[in-house]
Structures are given as C-alpha cells and as structure tokens.
C-alpha cells in the first residue's frame, strides 16, 4: 500500500437534551449568576449504536452532565462549559484563540498522563426571556505543525481473542502501550520507551478512519519518542469486526520553524459550516406554549 495522509473523523456528534438547557438555566439564575468561569461537565460517548448513517459516536448532554456522579458504561468524556452573559460576549469571544489555548493545555496535561489530553469544551448563551439557547462545542485536536502522519499499512483485527485482550485493557482509558509480543505494558509514559505498538480507543465509525482524538495521542507519542519513525496503532472500537490497525509513519519536516500546535475542533452544523447552534425551546419549555399544544 502506498503512503497516504492519515485522515480523521470528528470524534462525536453532540446531542443536547432539553433537561440540559433547563439545568443550565437554573444554574445560571441560582449559581453562576454573572460569573463566567469554566464549569465542569461530565458526559459519555455512546459508541454502541450501529446506525450506519452516523460517522461517529454520540455525545449526550443532559441535566446529569453537570454532576460528577456518572455511572455509565460508555466512554467517559469530561468537558468544560463557558456560559456567557450576553450574546455579544459570545459572538465577540475569540474562539480560535480559545481553541489554541485549550489545545495547548491538553497537550501539557497529556505530557503528564496521556489519557488526559482529551476533553470537550462548550460555549453557551442562554436567553432566558426568549427560551433560546446558543451553544457551540469543540473537541480540540492537535498536531505538531512540522509533522505529517502517513498511513502505509492497514488491516482489520481478525483475531477475536486478541481484540478481547486489547479491549479489556482499555476500560476507561484512551491509550495503552504494547511490547513487541503485544503484551500489555500500561497506559503511562513510564513504559513508552519499551513500547513497540500502541492501542487507542476509537469513537469513529468510518471504515478505518480514526476519530480526531487519536491525533492528540499520536502527537504526544511522537513528542515523547522524537526518534520514532513508524508505529503500529491498534484502533479499538466496540466490536471486533470493525476494529483495525494502521502502521503510521511519523514524518518530521526538517527546517520548519519551531513546532507549534496545529489545532482544529469546532463542531460543524448540518451545512458543514463552522457556526454555533441555536435551539429554540419555546414550544418545549415555555409554559404558555405548552398549554396551547397540549391535548
């Protein structure tokens, strides 16, 4: 197989439950008030469905997402919410800068524990008088600007026992390191120099196309092992028959300027545009509207 650039999928599609907006409205009135600090969110990516039309797992936010007490068996994903007081603040906020800063933070967190380089961020504005909610979610993914990632071999994981073994070690983790006999070494940087393969949890459904989260992890591995040229990566999905491995070539371009992080990650709307989403909850929560519709 010839070398091609490694492509990625957006790591999730986000679904916002009405109860999320309602809880946000309550918190805004009772807790946040005019405060605009980052607030923690707790969610999961559901990769269990086999909907052929989706390209990636579903991130689900509801009223429970403000609460650390999650008990789900899906892939846990933590996030932060930045809620604005006015629509103008939301609009004028420098989102590119925000994304770059967050990517940098995740990169640095990832240098301590690779599982911590993955998070999502949400910007929101709740127009409580008009029952309108504006929000935008990003999942920062990053890569060194002087590096290209190429694929030069790909295959499905045929061996179900091996898949089970690999998947078993990835519970609640994003990454794991394997030695040359494919024994599990651990998920921390202390074992990275002994590793000859890695495995990554994959929330994408597109055939042999990993989620953009993998980019963060591979970038960190390449950073920790500056001499590394090729690496075999197992991408573990929910079912063995769609999991696969790729041999990825890490190509560093000499002479480029000092490496900075190339980032992306704002969620696109249905027209594939980079703009926020607006949800009109008038007919869902406005009491007078509800009374009109009710049977």
């Amino acid at each position: 197989m010839s070398e091609t650039q490694l492509k990625f999928c957006y790591p999730f599609i986000s679904f916002i439950d009405i109860s999320f907006f309602q809880e946000l409205a309550r918190l805004k009135l009772e807790v946040f008030k005019l405060d605009t600090e980052l607030r923690s969110l707790y969610s999961t990516i559901n990769c269990n469905h086999r909907d052929q039309s989706s390209q990636s797992g579903h991130l689900f936010l509801d009223s429970q997402s403000f609460d650390a007490e999650g008990s789900s068996k899906d892939v846990p994903l933590s996030g932060s919410l930045l809620n604005f007081n006015t629509l103008e603040d939301f609009r004028d906020f420098d989102k590119t800068k925000f994304l770059n800063e967050k990517a940098r933070t995740l990169f640095e967190q990832g240098l301590k524990d690779p599982n911590h380089c993955i998070q999502f961020f949400m910007l929101s504005f709740a127009d409580l008088k008009k029952y309108k909610f504006y929000h935008w979610i990003c999942a920062p993914s990053f890569q060194m600007s002087d590096t290209s990632l190429l694929v030069n071999r790909n295959e499905f994981i045929r061996d179900v026992n091996k898949f089970d073994m690999l998947a078993g070690h990835l519970q609640n983790k994003w990454i794991g390191f394997l030695d040359k006999n494919e024994n599990y070494l651990g998920d921390q940087w202390s074992v990275v120099n002994d590793a000859s393969a890695i495995m990554i949890r994959d929330t994408s459904f597109a055939p042999q196309t990993p989620s953009a989260f993998a980019k963060n992890l591979i970038t960190l591995v390449a950073h920790q092992r500056p001499k590394l040229e090729t690496i075999r990566v197992y991408f573990i999905r929910n079912e063995s028959d769609t999991s696969y491995w790729l041999r990825i070539q890490i190509k560093r371009h000499e002479g480029k300027d000092a490496a900075y992080l190339k980032t992306s990650g704002w969620e696109r709307n249905v027209q594939n545009k980079l703009i926020p989403k607006l949800t009109d909850l008038n007919s869902l929560v406005n009491p007078t509207k509800l009374a009109e519709q009710s049977v």
Binding site: K7, C9, S53, Q55, L149, K262, S264
Partner: peptide
C-alpha cells in the same frame, strides 16, 4: 491547512 486531514461529513439534514 488546520483541518485538511478531517473527513468532513455533516450529518444529513433530514435525519
């Protein structure tokens, strides 16, 4: 160049 490696597939509008 920032997202040239992302396979963009917007969700289908009627779905």
């Amino acid at each position: 160049e920032d997202s040239d490696d992302i396979v963009a597939a917007a969700p289908r509008a009627d779905r």
